[in-house]
Amino acid sequence: MTSKKDRDGETALKNDDISPDIRQELFRLQVEIRDCEKRANDLFFQNMIKGTSHLSLGQEAIAAGMAMAMQPGDKSFCTYRGHAHTLARGVPMEKVLGELMLRDNGLMRGKGGSMHLTSVEHGVMGSYAIIGAHLPIACGAAWRAQYLGQDDVSVCFFGDGTTNIGAFHEALNFAAIWKLPVVFVCENNLYMEYTLTSEITAVEHPAADRASAYGLERIVIDGNDADVVYRTAQAAFAKARSGGGPSMIECMTYRHSGHSRADPAKYRPPGELERWLEKDPIKIYRTRLAEFGVPEARIRAIEEESKRKVDEATEVCKASPPAPAELLTTDVYADGGWAWRN
């Protein structure tokens, strides 16, 4: 992204390809994801979120930029680190936090939990917790669109560590040979759980370098700049929609917290987090908005509105009862029940 300094004042603003409204939306999404994730973290330490949870703190620009470029019918497939992508598609915070808190008001009424957020009405076609499994699944959804002549795109998010499992490679080849309208988005946050992916991977860019092997363009972008993500996504989605086939986008980013709630991330070398905090996507974007002339008061209003939304959502969730016992045996089979015998 060119900053205002390199540009010609007013002309730059006029020629900019991203409208002020979209910029503010991109900022709003990132801020809301950040605040909601922080709240999830707080609730976790208050023992109000059980099980596990994987935050996207520091990775918000990818979720925001991608979702902003999507159209309503487009389908997102994400991982257990999927709160951000779910929120970015417009799912209300209380539905997400409710599921994290395993309450009846949650997206799946507590039956799925934090790793499986799903909201079909928003195009969130599930969050998958077995590494790599959803890349072929996204291919299948894209195959359906191609077969039925529908123009939606399937967008599949995963991490750098995921590039070393077989399903990743099977899916890339499959998408390439069938020219499927699927966009793979690798959120390269440098680590799989607690190990540097670079230490266990044969190539430097685990997704992009492999994409080349399947005939796809090698795309590596700054995943902490929502504008860059948004522009790259628009191009990839347009290509998919017009029958041009799949893309792989490797987004460089960093998670500010540990892998999951239990992880204090002690394995990180000193200074690494601090360097990445300098490149905090929200910090970058706040400056960007100011450079493009968005008044400070407007920026503040977005930030305050986000805080208010998170507080409200938290209260709704706290007031919601836990999932009722009768849910235990519902929806095992399509008849709504669990009967396996007569």
């Binding site: 072929p136 699944i137 291919c139 299948g140 959804a141 359906r144 669109a145 077969y147 399937s154 399903a167």
Partner: peptide, 11 residues
């Protein structure tokens, strides 16, 4: 996986 993705979206 592809069969599943297709099944869950209408095929």
């Amino acid at each position: 996986g592809a069969a599943m993705g297709a099944a869950m979206t209408g095929l």
